[in-house]
Amino acid sequence: MCLAVPGKIEKILEDNYALADFGGVKKKICVDLLNGVKVGEYVNVHAGFAIHKIDEKEAKENLKLINEIRPDYRKV
């Protein structure tokens, strides 16, 4: 129930639509569910709708999390 894909906003279209780039393939999506989407921002898209912005700062924090060395797990 959760298949959403990250896309980069390429162009804002009229009537709350936008053109998003998904790793080289572009598709028109609806941005009714987000406020103020800008070109260059990343969003998660599900069933043709952008459902959440992807925060770049948070993405870096998320990355730090998965790179964390856990001292507990170094002992066998």
């Binding site: 569910l33 459902i51 959440h52 992807i54 924090e61 998320n62």
Partner: peptide, 18 residues
């Protein structure tokens, strides 16, 4: 929250209201 790049604690308020 592990998925912090796409989820914040309040969620998408506009979507919920919709």
């Amino acid at each position: 929250i592990e998925y912090s790049r796409s989820v914040d604690s309040k969620g998408n308020q506009l979507a919920k209201k919709t």
